[in-house]
């Protein structure tokens, strides 16, 4: 009835040092001793690169809309990815995108709270996917560009608690349940914020 427990910290420190050095050695020694820590870290990284890294565009899009600033968005996405990796043990499968967006959202909101003034809205569409088309004539294109600009300004002018939910629903196409999880609010709150956000957008678009 004895409990056999080894000092885990020493164990981890000794063997997680570097996969490249450990691997050949471990084959020569008692195969399978090292991987408990070093290979799990490798496995974790591989899993992370498979499940979380592919959602970089979604992460950046949300950060860009929340900060309204390209450079801040880039820094915050990197920070969010590091946090996501550290907390990756808490990811129990499922949709990696919704899980990542929750981390991105929290990272951005922390930054926004620290920088109360909020990001500036400067560049116009600088890194946006070019809208498809080319058949349309100049006048149609001008009308369309004006509408794109109006939409962008209206969404950017929304209070952040409406903006994040509108972006997650309309641009990332998350379900109410996924948004509720990512934003840490009940589904009813998602619905009411979405509804109020849309009303404001309709008013804003009509005023343009």
């Amino acid at each position: 009835m004895g409990q056999a427990i080894l000092p885990a910290a020493a164990f981890q420190a000794a063997f997680s040092s570097c996969a490249q050095v450990c691997r050949p050695a471990s084959a020569a020694w008692d195969n399978g001793i090292f991987p408990l820590s070093s290979m799990d870290e490798t496995t974790k990284l591989a899993l992370f690169e498979q499940t979380i890294v592919p959602h970089l565009n979604a992460a950046y899009n949300l950060a860009r809309w929340l900060t309204r600033n390209q450079h801040e968005a880039e820094d915050l996405v990197q920070e969010a990815y590091l946090r996501a990796f550290r907390f990756f043990d808490g990811f129990h499968g499922g949709d990696g995108r919704a899980w990542l967006l929750a981390v991105v959202r929290n990272t951005c909101l922390t930054w926004l709270r620290r920088n109360k003034s909020g990001g500036s809205s400067v560049e116009f569409n600088e890194e946006v996917h070019a809208p498809a088309g080319g058949q349309e004539n100049v006048e149609e294109r001008l009308v369309k560009n004006a509408k794109i600009d109006a939409l962008r300004k209206c969404v950017e002018s929304l209070p952040v608690e409406y903006r994040e939910i509108v972006v997650m629903r309309e641009l990332e196409e998350l379900s109410y349940r996924e948004i509720a999880e990512a934003a840490g609010v009940p589904i009813g709150t998602v619905m009411s914020r979405l509804s109020r956000g849309r009303l404001r957008l309709l008013d804003c678009m009509e005023a343009k």
């Binding site: 970089l56 565009n57 309309e170 641009l171």
Partner: peptide, 29 residues
Amino acid sequence: DLRTLAPRYAAPEHLQRRVLSAVRKEARP
């Protein structure tokens, strides 16, 4: 309009490299 016209900001190419190298560095003790 939102789904078809509002900008979906794509991550700049260098951001993927930046994020990957930061995470890999984090994974290495």
